[in-house]
Amino acid sequence: MAFVTTSDGVEIFYKDWGPKSAQPVVFHHGWPLSADDWDAQMLFLVNQGFRVVAHDRRGHGRSAQVGDGHDMDHYAADAAAVFAHLDLRGAVHVGHSTGGGEVAHYVARHGQPQDRVAKAVLIGAVPPIMVKTPANPGGLPIEVFDGFRAALAANRAQFYLDVASGPFYGFNRDGAQVSQGVIQNWWRQGMQGGAKAHYDGIKAFSETDFTDDLKAMTVPTLVLHGEDDQIVPIDDSARLAITHLRNGTLKTYPGFSHGMCTVNADVINADLLAFIRA
């Protein structure tokens, strides 16, 4: 397995498939998952001739289960260490949920200054900020995220099973086609990571304000969001984020859930490919 060691000594796992001479498409996963959550997109795009790269965030998946650094500054710096090691140029960076925040933070603070980024895609992403604040009155109350922390601390395994079985993929909706394999794969990825990283990561994805990152992004940016996203509500995320982007395009999907990259992979893959090739 391939790892990069960061400047503070953390081993970050990554996958790197496809021709090294091809344009890179880089994936940033959501909480509390791993690079495996991008299987449908990576397999599709590598078969289209692209180089595809994805890493496990610190404390997640196969990366080191360290006790600290579970904040967006470290997440973006860790990603930058991987991409510098691979010397990726002209990359398209794709982030889902928390990974969308990581993309914004990385592109604004590392990728653009280092001239490594060509385009960005934010899918079901948390920017500009999830929690309710005086400046973000439509956000979710802090008590929602306190509830996540309490559920994780009390019984992480059951909490993750409940999330995957219900709101993440919209499996709690009438008429939903429930996949036990999808549920178990989500649970597997979550339980592979560290409880401390996941606990601290709730603050990172809910309280980080990405407004300045969005404003600093100049590369073409595609924002994709499901209109029935029960995890990251569209009105408090994508529809606000697009107002801060200088070069952004918003596309929404009626009825699609937070987990649309998996359960609606055919639609999302086609739209990703069209944007990358445009």
Results as ranks from 00 to 15, higher is better:
241 A>V: 00
189 Q>V: 02
187 W>V: 15
216 A>C: 09
201 G>K: 04
183 I>H: 11
205 F>C: 08
220 P>T: 13
218 T>W: 02
218 T>E: 15
199 Y>N: 08
222 L>G: 10
229 D>W: 07
183 I>T: 09
239 R>H: 08
195 A>F: 06
214 L>K: 04
214 L>V: 00
196 K>G: 05
181 G>F: 10
198 H>Y: 06
180 Q>F: 12
234 I>E: 05
182 V>A: 14
179 S>H: 12
223 V>L: 11
182 V>W: 07
203 K>L: 11
186 W>C: 12
212 D>M: 08
226 G>W: 06
199 Y>A: 09
239 R>Q: 10
241 A>N: 05
242 I>D: 02
237 S>F: 00
203 K>D: 14
233 P>F: 00
179 S>T: 11
237 S>R: 02
206 S>V: 03
185 N>M: 11
209 D>F: 06
192 Q>Y: 08
198 H>A: 14
197 A>Y: 04
209 D>T: 02
204 A>T: 07
184 Q>T: 06
232 V>A: 11
235 D>R: 13
227 E>G: 04
199 Y>T: 06
207 E>N: 13
235 D>N: 14
198 H>V: 09
198 H>N: 11
207 E>F: 14
221 T>Q: 13
235 D>P: 03
197 A>W: 03
198 H>W: 01
228 D>Q: 14
206 S>F: 05
240 L>E: 09
230 Q>R: 09
234 I>D: 05
206 S>G: 13
208 T>A: 10
216 A>S: 15
217 M>R: 01
236 D>W: 00
181 G>L: 11
181 G>M: 09
190 G>S: 14
205 F>I: 09
239 R>M: 05
222 L>E: 08
211 T>Q: 11
233 P>N: 00
200 D>F: 03
213 D>C: 10
208 T>N: 11
201 G>L: 03
215 K>P: 03
213 D>L: 06
197 A>C: 09
229 D>P: 02
234 I>N: 04
206 S>N: 09
201 G>H: 02
229 D>V: 07
238 A>H: 01
195 A>V: 11
218 T>F: 07
197 A>G: 15
234 I>T: 12
231 I>Y: 05
242 I>C: 01
243 T>D: 13
234 I>R: 06
185 N>E: 15
190 G>T: 08
224 L>E: 07
198 H>P: 00
217 M>C: 01
235 D>K: 13
179 S>C: 10
237 S>M: 00
227 E>D: 07
241 A>P: 00
211 T>S: 15
208 T>G: 03
230 Q>V: 08
232 V>H: 04
180 Q>M: 15
213 D>S: 09
179 S>W: 12
189 Q>K: 12
230 Q>W: 06
228 D>V: 06
210 F>H: 15
221 T>S: 14
202 I>M: 08
240 L>T: 05
242 I>N: 04
225 H>K: 02
225 H>G: 02
227 E>H: 03
208 T>M: 01
242 I>V: 05
239 R>G: 05
243 T>V: 01
193 G>M: 05
220 P>W: 14
221 T>E: 08
